[in-house]
Write a protein that binds this DNA or RNA. Sequence first.
DNA 1: ATTCATACTGTGTGCGTACACGGAAAAAAG
DNA 2: CTTTTTTCCGTGTACGCACACAGTATGAAT
Lengths: 362, 362
Amino acid sequence: MDTRIRIKDIADRAGISPGTVDRVIHDRGNVSPETKKKVMEVMEELGYKPNIIARTLANNKIQRIVALIPDPTGDLYWDQPKMGIEKALRAVQHYGIEVRIAYFDRFDPASFQQKATQILEETSPLDAILFTPIFQQESRELLDACKEREIPNVMINTNIENSGSLCYIGQDSFQSGVLGARLLDFGLHDGETALILNLDKRITNAKHLQDKESGFRDYFSKVTNKHIHIVRKDFEEFGDRDKLRAFLQRQLAENPRLSGIFVTNSRAYKVAEALDDADLERIKIVGYDLIQPNLDLLKCNKINFIINQNPVQQGYLGIMNLFNHLIMKHEVAPLQYLPLDIVVVENVEYYLKRELEFQIVL
Amino acid sequence: MDTRIRIKDIADRAGISPGTVDRVIHDRGNVSPETKKKVMEVMEELGYKPNIIARTLANNKIQRIVALIPDPTGDLYWDQPKMGIEKALRAVQHYGIEVRIAYFDRFDPASFQQKATQILEETSPLDAILFTPIFQQESRELLDACKEREIPNVMINTNIENSGSLCYIGQDSFQSGVLGARLLDFGLHDGETALILNLDKRITNAKHLQDKESGFRDYFSKVTNKHIHIVRKDFEEFGDRDKLRAFLQRQLAENPRLSGIFVTNSRAYKVAEALDDADLERIKIVGYDLIQPNLDLLKCNKINFIINQNPVQQGYLGIMNLFNHLIMKHEVAPLQYLPLDIVVVENVEYYLKRELEFQIVL
DNA sequence: ATTCATACTGTGTGCGTACACGGAAAAAAG
DNA sequence: CTTTTTTCCGTGTACGCACACAGTATGAAT
């Protein structure tokens, strides 16, 4: 395989045996300082790059990763990180990586806490954790436990600052709000009203929703040629269509010139379904995520734009980054913002196809 | 590594030696029909999956790939597939893949032909080719030569139908035109004119530009609430700013209500640079590709939308697909359309970041 | 002077596969 | 029946690395 430098080459050049070079490489001690220095110099000089193929073959232990994500039952969005995780697993399982996916109730912090504890206690060995820190408090506890036990971890979808995590993979919430504003702006005229709508339980961590709102407001604060009135509302009972309809009617009554709604999560379809066609004609809707009900409404122009949060990618890259860390021993970028894909009818197909097809199959 | 089935396990179960199992796996003959059948049954029964790691380590020959792409000198776009190819190489070089990049003059079919011949004759062994078939005729000749010599090949950026290629990776040109129309449509009013502008030498294959035009027209043919007049122009001397300016002034004179320009390749910046600020205020521009001059003009709102053709991805996936074919011996999807990314000021940063950062480093 | 501990270094085996080589058995030729 | 050829199959080695283990050298303690 080419003229690659092997450990043996280093050894020959340094006038010692491969075993010693190996000790230097893995910093396993029992090497005299001079020899170590010499070996390091030779490695530098010859540009030694370990052969991962041989390394993985020799080092045949398994690395166990546990992923803790929301139970996708009844929520189409959370099925997608799962798909990404499974796709990544297929790519790296040859390297001795094992992934178990655990689920928690996305509306119940106690469930998260319980599962996290269970994972920490019952999984052995536990080499890494991938999780979605949607509950701020409970996630911090998990992060602390990881730090204490020196378990590398990756966060996806929601970020927590100063977490000590290996990395975060997901969107930049603030900028995501800016983009949402920009997209709504296409359909807004001077003096009209835009509504920021959080269809979520209050209990879930609102941090990234707040960031989206800040970004949204930031955009319009910089628009000079027209003035847009901005209103924010939270509504918890999104499961009940009639209540949602009543709620929306109230908003329309209070804001007669309401002509744009920014739904901060994947539930834009609920809004579109609850509004009358006549209102929909006038009101532009920007939402998140390529889930089926959103797609259906996008195709008949009842939702105007969808911002793709790349949930499949999040899961995929989460695992791949752990792979890079655990097996490849590469540096991992701590903050990995995914693109803010703008999805309209005309390009939706290709994003869907990409999610389904492989990227890299190893 | 888990409880994986090895060749030795198959051998034991079938009551023969690993060598024979290996012969069956690689169909290398010298195995009696009964034994072969027996081995196949056992493999099926135990669900044998070859260990790629060990396979690659043992099979230490190199696979030589040559990439034939346009010389990026003086054209910022073509630098990007090159980056993608290099990124992919970094990911798979451990598996014994070697890539050499050859360049041709993107305005000179003879140069393509000459380089192609040279590659076929002088590279030995030549295990695969990745190329951009921008010259229809000459590319067909290369495809024929590949077919004759049974050299697997991948096309990126431009597609040729019925090519016998392993796969095509790039955009769906027609749909790309549809999207371009949709984006321009945001800024167009009833009765206004949209210009489809090909800033290219006539000599280059116009097939994918034609497709873009068809898509563009197709979109507006389906718009019912307003009527948009569509004009198409080709202009070869885009290198000369004064001539381009004069040309554009002529268009403005001929089409007083011209308020949208769809530039079908990466040269939108040339249009924006050649127009007066007063005209730019009114005229919306949609172009392609995240190259620096386009980005600068996007940021100051002189270009409104950029469609990303994902050139880095094209190169990256091109190599990765050959890797999948050559090393992994996986099936490869023959038609791999990349997403049509809509890029505006608000999300441009994240696309750029993605291109620069790794995706998978192996 | 011998033993013993310590600090360091070399050797060997295994990981799962590919493939060359050689040997045995069966079939064909003499 | 013997020799040669063919067909089939087992053994061994290499791939590059990790790691256990077996050394060797040095100096201190007895």
